[in-house]
Design a protein around this nucleic acid. Sequence first.
DNA 1: CCGCGTAGTGACAGTGACTGACGCTACGAA
DNA 2: TTCGTAGCGTCAGTCACTGTCACTACGCGG
Lengths: 189, 189
Amino acid sequence: MPRSGEEARRRLQQAALELYAERGFDRTTTAEIAARAGVTERTFFRHFPDKREVLFDGEATLRADLTASVAEAPDGLPPLEILLRAFRKAGRIVEGNRSFAEPRLAVIAATPALRERDLAKAAAMSDALAAALRARGVADRLAALAAHVGWATFHHAAGAWIEEADRSLDEHLDEAFADLRALAAETGG
Amino acid sequence: MPRSGEEARRRLQQAALELYAERGFDRTTTAEIAARAGVTERTFFRHFPDKREVLFDGEATLRADLTASVAEAPDGLPPLEILLRAFRKAGRIVEGNRSFAEPRLAVIAATPALRERDLAKAAAMSDALAAALRARGVADRLAALAAHVGWATFHHAAGAWIEEADRSLDEHLDEAFADLRALAAETGG
DNA sequence: CCGCGTAGTGACAGTGACTGACGCTACGAA
DNA sequence: TTCGTAGCGTCAGTCACTGTCACTACGCGG
């Protein structure tokens, strides 16, 4: 069949997303995904380590992009501002994949096993962002906290963007970070 | 009353923990766990929904205890203070299970699949604590934030308590929450 | 134009997690 | 004693995932 393995990879992702959305994650077999993509089950596992990972393929690239942005940010900015700029830049790529991101989020929300994987990815992302901040001289615990809260805020903004189609991801990002600042300004009680 | 299948359940947990620690999680089969516990593999899955869950059996009880403590706390206390008191009370039970908790943490830290489950349990715990706080009238987003941060702090204190045997869990809890207050008092940078 | 290495794949066998169904047995209540 | 039932054993089956080998289409140097 086709010489480029990248082609089969994309077909597998598309087929998996469709089937997960149609029948649900648990009632979809990897053999069915492979069949719809026009390959064998064995090829599925050559491209993806397991049945869940097929929905999280972009995470490694996104993580690399974000940490690179953090590293390149101008000096003198507070941690959350550095992160917001990185999110805005990466958001352009995310915004182009809306037709994939939308059903993807719905499927993840409906499947405990996928929510679990999503949490693990979020943790890995937080760790990577914290390391990138520390490399810029941000204090240890502050870097961890900023990375954690920052990613959670991005995650939240992305969800809001999916639900509210007519506004841009940037708008949702700005709003979410504004909410965060307001929340932090409250003196608790 | 049931014909004490609770006995088999405890033997299964003990056997699983031992085998995971000896050979590692991936190289332990559920059949081996069952054999060491003196039952069949089928019985393992009657007590636990999957191979991971056998290490997280106390979580539901702990969650119930904590949310009950939150509900019963006196009025007028700030959210984090309510949580700290709940953690102290629940900590007494945790402290009695040190011989189980110690190898358990080591195995979880060494196994990606178990770390994933651990994150999911933490998320469930945060949600439950946030709901308990909201039931007391704590504002929506503040409840979520306090629950999240509070549980993370408890988790951290429990880890420190495992590593440093000679000090009590209460001491570690107080120290962790003191650190948290200091961190919050810093005006960023 | 011709071998020749290699990346992507198909085919097949095998392991192990997990499920459903059925029957047995010990215990407790009537 | 009898009967209901909870816990368990046994067996068969599905499906996620892995190791291995052979094949085929290209890419490259000759």
